[in-house]
Amino acid sequence: MENRLSRKVKSKEQSCLCKQGHASQVRFQHRMSGRTSLTQGHRHRFRNLTDRFIPGRGTHRHTFNGITRIADGHRHAYSGITGPAINGQGPRHFHRFRQVTQVADGHTHIISGRTSVPIRVSGSAKHRHGLIVESIQRI
């Protein structure tokens, strides 16, 4: 029997009922991009968006995953969790990340850096809202 925290997730996206009476769902994520560490004479580029929002006491984190671009005839998958929010939790916050990729062609790389500030990935551009709040339930 598996006991994982992120198996069942209920997402509560911020809704807006503006004066015009329409409801809009708004979702925020962070961009992640850069180059891996140098291993066996090559690097890979990576680019992705953060995934789930993980609330914490006075802060939050995000999960992320992706696949690097091909370099030296192969690519690497990666996944992890960002560090806590830096610079508050408002529109100017970001996260640091550092993760080892999965093995490919007999080696790994490290991806590291900082995310962008939050970006809107869905919902109305006419409104400003808070971040997604997801509750993670143990199954």
Rank of each mutant, 00 (worst) to 15 (best):
F97W: 05
H62W: 12
G88C: 05
G123L: 06
T50I: 08
R120V: 06
K126V: 02
G73Y: 10
F94N: 04
G83S: 11
G83I: 04
H42V: 09
T101E: 06
R96W: 02
Y78W: 04
S33N: 12
H93F: 03
T101R: 01
R69W: 06
T39A: 15
I54W: 15
H60G: 01
F46L: 11
R92I: 00
A125C: 02
F97M: 03
G90A: 11
D51M: 09
I81C: 09
H109V: 05
Y78T: 04
H30C: 00
H74V: 05
H127A: 06
G58I: 01
G88W: 06
N65E: 15
R35N: 12
I70V: 14
D105R: 15
Q40A: 12
G66W: 11
R96M: 02
R61M: 12
L49W: 14
V103D: 11
T59P: 02
D72K: 00
G123I: 05
H60Y: 00
F53L: 12
T101Q: 06
P118G: 13
I86R: 01
I70H: 14
T68F: 06
R35P: 01
I119H: 00
T108S: 10
G41Y: 08
R114M: 06
T50W: 12
Q40N: 13
T68S: 15
T39F: 03
G88E: 06
T82I: 08
H74T: 06
R45Y: 09
H95R: 11
T50H: 11
H95Q: 08
R52Y: 12
H44S: 07
H76A: 03
I54Y: 15
D72C: 12
A71E: 13
T82H: 13
I81W: 08
G90I: 01
R57I: 07
V117S: 13
R92W: 02
R61G: 05
I86G: 00
T115K: 01
I110D: 04
H95W: 08
A125Y: 03
R52S: 15
R114P: 01
H107N: 07
